[in-house]
Simulated assay, not measured.
Amino acid sequence: MSQSNLYLVQDEEKATAELRCVYNLQKKIETEIAQGDFSEAKLLAVDILNSLNELEFLRSRKMNQDELSRVVIQLEKQGIVSAMVKWPNE
């Protein structure tokens, strides 16, 4: 399964490491369940959840960047080449 285009270039290495971690933890969970060590399997499941949360965060960074790029392109098509952004309280 290709992960290209799911993450920002600077996040790809971290995403790959997190994915590898998830897959390795899945295998360990299967082993712990087979051995009857459900407490350890639950701890490993928490680690999987943490990795999945990180992957979700990294994916959202890419989606936000893609949306920003689309907005910039739309603005350029409308002839707006620069803008000043102000915070709501300014």
Rank of each mutant, 00 (worst) to 15 (best):
S2T: 15
S2R: 14
Q3Y: 15
S4C: 12
N5G: 01
N5W: 12
Y7W: 12
Q10D: 08
Q10M: 13
E12V: 15
E12T: 15
E13Y: 11
K14C: 13
K14E: 14
E18Q: 14
L19K: 11
C21W: 00
V22Y: 01
Y23G: 02
N24R: 10
L25T: 09
Q26H: 07
Q26P: 10
Q26N: 09
K27P: 01
K28D: 03
I33Q: 11
I33D: 04
A34H: 09
Q35V: 11
G36M: 05
F38Q: 08
S39G: 04
E40T: 13
E40F: 07
L44A: 09
L44F: 05
A45M: 14
L49T: 12
N50D: 14
S51H: 07
S51C: 12
R59K: 10
R59C: 04
R59N: 03
S60W: 00
R61Q: 11
M63W: 05
M63I: 09
Q65K: 05
D66M: 06
S69K: 10
V71N: 03
V72D: 02
Q74S: 02
Q74K: 08
L75C: 00
E76R: 00
Q78V: 04
G79M: 04
I80N: 00
V81I: 10
A83D: 01
A83H: 01
W87T: 09
